[in-house]
Amino acid sequence: MNSLVFLIPIALLLGGAALAAFLWSLRSGQYDDLDGAAERILLDDEDDPKKTPERDQPNKPAP
């Protein structure tokens, strides 16, 4: 019984911290664009020269 005196407040504090973190993530816009990340994998990045390092280096002959 004496352990419940410590465990119940600790459980309430952890639950409150989890709720506060969830509410903070809602307010900061964490869940605004749920479909964007799922559709981003379908986009073709071959046209972006920043993402292809082969285009930045000149052709080097093999040694």
Rank of each mutant, 00 (worst) to 15 (best):
L4C: 07
V5C: 03
V5L: 02
L7A: 11
I8S: 02
I8A: 01
I8Q: 00
P9G: 07
P9K: 01
P9E: 05
I10Q: 08
A11C: 10
L13E: 03
L13H: 04
L14Q: 00
L14S: 05
G15P: 05
G16S: 12
G16H: 05
G16R: 05
G16I: 02
A18Y: 01
A18S: 10
A18F: 05
L19K: 08
L19C: 13
L19I: 08
A21V: 05
A21E: 08
L23Y: 00
W24M: 11
S25L: 01
G29E: 09
D32I: 05
D32P: 00
D33W: 06
L34N: 04
D35W: 02
A37I: 13
A37Q: 15
E39V: 06
R40F: 11
I41C: 07
I41N: 05
I41R: 04
L42N: 13
L43T: 15
D44M: 07
D45S: 11
E46H: 13
E46Y: 14
D47I: 01
D48N: 12
P49M: 03
K50M: 15
R55G: 06
Q57M: 15
Q57H: 13
Q57G: 13
Q57P: 04
P58L: 05
P58A: 10
P61N: 03
A62R: 12
A62G: 10
P63V: 07
